[in-house]
Design a protein around this nucleic acid. Structure first.
Lengths: 212, 212
DNA sequence: GTCTATATTGAGATAGAC
DNA sequence: GTCTATCTCAATATAGAC
């Protein structure tokens, strides 16, 4: 079987790997063992290549990480751009962001998983963290807007709200595996339902407040 | 200043470190750089010791990790034991577990942070993951009970519910820093409020369902 | 585009003195 | 309880042939 990239594009022409093919394998290994614990040696074994062949495609181990993180960040930033382009209440645009983020997370699961484990010890990692912070900041602004609109509860700080919501979303990488019972749409619906309406039985709680 | 352990106990007698003192420093370093990326050399530097001095206290780097993970797991398991001992509806016992988990997370922030980053590549890590899974299983059972009671929404799978709830709770380690604006009680209250009642404005959503 | 061989550095761990 | 000195191994990366 020919090498095939995760995005489904079958490469043509000469045999051997292209950057994307190596990236897919590398990201999987980084997620399994951790970036630091993954040596170029085991990477080479998994690829069926020698170590030096990898250096033909990437200048360093760091650069592999850089490309992988960029893929995840680019996709997330795309969700934000789409939501910003949309009109309507902030609550609706936030809904778009939450659902979009779940979809990115599912579509690029290994890449986002890797991104979420970055701690900022190298320059590459720090740049990735800076982009993540910018993303979080934009989401927090959206939450703040929705609170002002009155569509989101205002008794909790906007940054806490957005962190908790994305804490929930991001935790999906810890257990979601494609091909399972839940597809991405169902998962996104569940997550947004829990985030917005909570876990309590719809009929059993708020009624009290209305009747009390 | 004498070495002091994180739990506040000042050690008496001869100078030098005890296990707890080394553990506190090691866990902080593991969280900053990652376990694999933290060499015994930098650990020794931070302690103001030589590498070999550390081996007087711990048999291996792995054993340091083992002790640290045990501290976090023991505390979490304690929360579960307390909730199991309590009587009352499952929803109330689940509330105890959620609040208790947030408190453990805040009290032992570095230790729980380390635990949450374990991926299971060594025997020590796999044992820790097994204990985590047992914890999650117990929480899921509690959720399931609460769903049967009718106090938690039953339209989402119990294991998804508990994973999302703990995803939210666990994400606190990513941003909470002690001494900040929010103390542990306030934080626990916010988290449980969001998890149970959601982010939407209490009055603005469910009313529709009742009146519709 | 991939290979073998190698340079160089730093890792975890131990021996044995004080 | 801590030290210096050292062992052994594996890491990233490069050189240069095919």
């Amino acid at each position: 079987m020919k090498p095939m990239s995760e995005n489904g594009t079958m490469r043509r022409g000469r045999p051997g790997y292209d950057q994307q093919g190596i990236l897919d394998v590398a990201v999987a290994a980084f997620n399994q063992f951790g970036y630091d614990a993954t040596s170029m040696g085991v990477l080479a074994d998994r690829l069926g290549l020698s170590k030096s062949a990898i250096y033909h495609h990437f200048a360093s181990k760091d650069e592999i990480l850089d490309r992988a993180l960029d893929a995840a960040l680019g996709a997330l930033e795309g969700v934000l751009r789409e939501a910003d382009a949309a009109t309507g209440p902030a609550a609706d645009r936030l809904d778009l962001v939450l659902r979009g983020a779940v979809h990115v997370l599912v579509d690029k699961l290994p890449y986002v998983t890797l991104l979420l484990r970055v701690r900022g010890n190298t320059e590459v990692e720090r740049r990735a963290l800076a982009r993540r912070r910018a993303f979080d900041k934009a989401v927090t602004a959206l939450v703040s807007e929705a609170q002002t609109e009155g569509s989101l509860r205002g008794d909790i700080d906007a940054s806490v709200v957005s962190r908790l919501a994305f804490g929930m979303i991001n935790s999906i990488v810890e257990w979601y595996r494609p091909g399972g019972r839940e597809d991405a749409d169902r998962l996104a619906a569940d997550v947004v339902a829990v985030a917005l309406d909570g876990l309590r039985t719809p009929a059993s709680n708020r009624v009290q407040e209305l009747l009390g």
